[in-house]
Design a protein around this nucleic acid. Structure first.
Lengths: 253, 253
DNA sequence: CAGTGGTCTAGACCACTGC
DNA sequence: CAGTGGTCTAGACCACTGT
């Protein structure tokens, strides 16, 4: 009913055209937050397409957060309260490469020890877990672009005990040798202390962007790593374009 | 062929069971990166389901980045080179609320002026654009949790000229009055300068996490905002769980 | 309890692409 | 040019839920 006057642009697959047509109604304020969009069978009839096609279009908008669906009630334009933007975290080498910079990896230290009773290791891996601790830094065009401190769980990845990580970065090595089933990221800003400042070659007390990543396989923590970037570098989190095509992503130094 | 010995767990929709079964093969290292997974018609036959169902399961894994598909060649386990984590950026009020904190909004300054030839405004909005500039801060439990500096394009949102923003935060106001079609986020760390440090009530030179957000409607920039958080606060970017269910997301102070 | 969305099927045609 | 995935259909049954 009402004006299901959709204007499909004839570009690309049908479900994409329908998705964009609905997104256009929303971003054009014709359908406000809370507004009930036409039922699936109404669109099906109005557009002369199968219900599966309409369903696919709307479901894409649901995962984009623009539509909320309720059985028996209908589908509604969501309140735009949050922004979900994809943050793509590349390996340091891939990031340097993407920026056209020359890349070099430097191992700073490597040691094996059990997780003691400190917050950094015991809480995350469990007391007594065998760990290898690695400090390294990644250079782009001869300048430090990132310094990392990492712990790897040897109970889960015993092969890491035989790797010296002198030529290959632990992150890249893990990606080749170990799958993960779950990852968590925490972002914060901090003042670089003596060690970190020296590794990044910035003034002590200078701001620094830290991404902490914890990776699991099943219930076991594979690795925990602090990725530290000089404060003047910027991370492009991502672009979200519900109208034109969905989610894009790039990266800047 | 080969071992398409899938073990569906009987939990939830068929396409979800199939998706999890494939994800299990991958995270369990049975199917390594580069490995060709069974063709759709093979799985269809092996599982006794419709091809659309298999297709839906695999497509979900494609958007999770675990599978790459090539016509005529087949579907392959992707190289796990990047991590895509969804970062949910709530309004300050929603974030405080989620942490069970009392929330208060404070307008610090408001002014109207055209975009001059400075990098902050003219580059983003175009020279001469009428802008309203707002400085404000958001308090959680009486402590500054975030200070923002924002420019709003009056050519696009003329109603903003009549709003004093004394009681409602500009972010919340915009969400109610203006849709966006595209958003971009940039994260960086910086040392708080005099003004910012005073607003956040932190020492001058203390680290600070900044999220810059630029929002578009069509080709026009609606607003550009700097969200500044004290460096000791942490942003939980999100959890990505390809095996169990997909993407989760929370937030910490 | 009627109507919505959620899922699933058994086909079909087509575009692209590797051989 | 044969085979893969990409898309689409016209049905169907069911779970949930608002009235």
């Amino acid at each position: 009913m009402a004006d299901a006057s959709f204007e499909l642009d004839g570009q690309g697959p049908l479900y994409e055209q329908i998705r964009k047509a609905i997104a256009r109604k929303i971003t054009g304020r014709e359908w406000r937050p809370g507004h009930r969009i036409p039922f699936e069978n109404e669109m099906t009839a109005a557009l002369g397409v199968s219900r599966m096609t309409v369903n696919r279009a709307i479901n894409a908008l649901v995962s984009d957060g623009l539509i909320v669906r309720r059985r028996k009630a209908g589908s509604f334009v969501a309140e735009q309260s949050t922004l979900d933007a994809p943050l793509t975290i590349l390996t340091a080498e891939a990031e340097a490469c993407a920026n056209g910079a020359t890349y070099r990896y430097e191992l700073l230290s490597r040691s094996v020890s059990p997780a003691i009773r400190d917050a950094m290791t015991a809480d995350r891996f469990g007391p007594g877990t065998s760990l290898v601790c690695i400090e390294a830094r990644h250079m782009a065009n001869g300048q430090p672009m990132m310094a990392e401190r990492r712990w790897i769980n040897l109970d889960v990845v015993p092969a890491a005990a035989n790797e010296d990580f002198k030529t290959i970065a632990p992150g890249a090595w893990l990606l080749k040798h170990m799958p993960w089933s779950e990852a968590e990221h925490v972002i914060s800003a901090l003042a670089a202390d003596g060690d970190l400042a020296r590794h990044l070659e910035i003034a002590s007390g200078a701001p620094c962007l830290r991404i902490e990543r914890r990776t699991w396989i099943g219930d076991a923590t594979i690795t925990f790593v602090e990725l530290n970037y000089p404060g003047d570098s910027k991370k492009l989190v991502g672009r979200f374009q519900p109208l034109t095509g969905g989610r894009g992503n790039e990266k800047r130094s």
